[in-house]
């Protein structure tokens, strides 16, 4: 993991530190020019009564930061039974399109209104994730990583951004101990075929080489599900998942 710190305002420090050696043994992903690729479209539906979206219980200092009610993001189901914040990815794919990385448009995770935005962010392995602090109050970015380095850094109000790069693909829970209702997820992707469902419960994986694949979804409360899908050149293959109250 690499880390770069920027302090904007009172003082500016730029530090770049290599936190670990590169893994000698890791599953390889080979980027190729995908011609006649197909698309996997998916939808995650909810079965049963639509759950209410609760407001989070907040307390403590920094009231302006959490003056507005903060909705719970860990189960968001639309009125028409579509589930948001579900991560989908292709399992065991070893070649395909390259990562679409634009250094001028860094992937960001903001702390705004004492809430992580977005709730789930997907970042390619080796690309910096820019963690922002729009709140102007003290947060601590606490990453509960297992494969990557565990990480707990102060972000006082004057510190506007902190860049972190990850070595290994995994899902990392991110929290803030100062405002302990804050909860989000960083999904470190080892290939470009990852997506997160929006309000419509849908995801889309484009430019997939023709072949047979396993698509896996993950929801923080409901765990994983898998489905087999066949991709043919230039065509769309659709897949549907259903979540229901345990």
């Amino acid at each position: 993991m690499k880390e770069t710190t920027h302090l904007v305002g009172v003082v500016t420090i730029v530090a770049s530190v290599c936190l670990s050696t590169r893994p000698a043994i890791a599953a390889k992903y080979e980027a190729i020019d995908v011609k006649d690729g197909g698309t996997i479209t998916g939808i995650v539906r909810w079965e049963g009564e639509i759950p209410k979206r609760h407001r989070l219980k907040v307390s403590g200092a920094d009231e302006p930061c959490h003056a507005k009610p903060i909705p719970n993001d860990n189960l968001v189901v639309s009125k028409d039974a579509k589930v948001r914040w579900v991560v989908a990815h292709i399992k065991k794919i070893d070649h395909g399109k390259p990562f679409d990385i634009d250094p001028d448009k860094p992937i960001t995770l903001d702390q705004k209104g004492c809430r992580f935005r977005p709730h789930i962010v997907v970042v390619p392995k080796d690309q910096p994730l820019r963690i922002l602090n729009s709140d102007g109050v003290l947060h601590n970015v606490h990453l509960h990583a297992k494969k990557n380095e565990p990480f707990n850094r102060s972000m006082p109000g004057r510190m506007k951004q902190l860049d972190v790069t990850f070595d290994y693909s995994e899902r990392i829970r991110v929290g803030c101990d100062v405002h302990k209702w804050m909860s989000g997820w960083i999904v470190v992707a080892k290939h470009p075929y990852y997506a997160v469902t929006g309000k419509d419960g849908a995801f889309r994986l484009e430019g997939v080489p023709a072949g047979n694949y396993t698509v896996e979804i993950w929801h923080e409360k409901f765990g994983k599900q898998q489905a087999e899908v066949t991709v043919t050149p230039g065509a769309e293959a659709s897949v549907e998942f259903v979540l229901k109250q345990k």
Binding site: S20, T21, P23, A24, I25, A26, A27, K91, K92, K146, K147, E149, Y168, S169, K190
Partner: peptide
């Protein structure tokens, strides 16, 4: 912990977990 967390994960090899365990205590 790694073996428990990533049990059955086909995208993670046992060798990778062994290597990570060494890096995490360095």
């Amino acid at each position: 912990v790694l073996r428990e967390e990533f049990a059955g994960d086909e995208d993670t090899s046992p060798d990778e977990l062994e290597e990570i365990s060494h890096i995490r205590v360095r």
